[in-house]
Amino acid sequence: TTTLTYTDEEEARKAAEELKRRGITFTYTKRGGTWEIRIK
């Protein structure tokens, strides 16, 4: 499992869109002031 952490929502959203485009499965979690993208 790879976890990407972002403090900028815009960056996190761009990363999530890129992963979706590649067909990669991930979970997206907001934790306080950070956003976590966990790639399975």
Rank of each mutant, 00 (worst) to 15 (best):
K40T: 15
F26G: 01
T27M: 05
E9F: 07
G23M: 03
T5D: 02
Y28W: 12
I24S: 02
R31Y: 11
E18N: 09
L4N: 03
R21E: 08
G23C: 06
G33I: 07
F26E: 00
T1I: 14
I24P: 00
R13L: 14
R13C: 13
K14N: 09
T34C: 11
K30M: 06
T3H: 06
T29Y: 09
Y6T: 01
K20L: 13
T1Q: 11
R31S: 13
E36Q: 05
K20V: 11
E11R: 05
K40M: 15
I39T: 03
W35F: 10
E10W: 13
A16S: 05
T3R: 07
Y28H: 03
G32D: 14
E9N: 03
T29G: 06
D8K: 07
E36M: 06
A16W: 03
R13T: 08
E10R: 13
G23L: 02
G23P: 00
R13I: 14
D8R: 07
I37P: 00
A16G: 05
T29V: 11
E10S: 13
T7K: 07
Y28M: 15
K40H: 14
W35P: 01
Y6W: 03
R22C: 13
Y28T: 08
R31P: 02
E10F: 11
R22D: 04
T1A: 11
E17G: 08
R31T: 14
G32T: 04
R38T: 15
W35L: 03
E11L: 08
A15E: 04
E11A: 11
R31L: 14
F26H: 03
K14L: 10
E11Q: 10
A15M: 15
T29F: 09
T1V: 13
I39E: 01
Y6H: 01
E17H: 10
E17N: 08
E10P: 04
T34G: 10
K14M: 10
A15V: 14
F26C: 02
I37M: 02
G33P: 11
T25C: 12
R31H: 12
T7N: 09
A12Q: 01
R21M: 08
G32C: 10
K14Q: 11
R38A: 12
R38L: 12
R21H: 06
L19G: 00
K14H: 09
A15L: 05
R13V: 09
Y28G: 02
T2D: 08
E18K: 06
D8Q: 06
R13S: 06
Y6A: 01
L4V: 06
T25R: 12
K40V: 15
R38F: 08
K20S: 11
G33V: 06
G32E: 12
I37Y: 01
K30E: 13
K30C: 13
E36C: 04
D8W: 03
T34Y: 15
G33L: 12
E17F: 11
A12H: 01
E18A: 09
T5I: 15
K30Y: 13
F26I: 03
T29H: 12
E36I: 15
T5F: 14
R22G: 04
R21K: 11
K30W: 07
E10Q: 13
F26Y: 07
I24H: 03
I24N: 02
G23W: 02
T5W: 12
R38V: 15
Y6C: 03
T7Q: 08
E10Y: 12
T25K: 14
T2N: 09
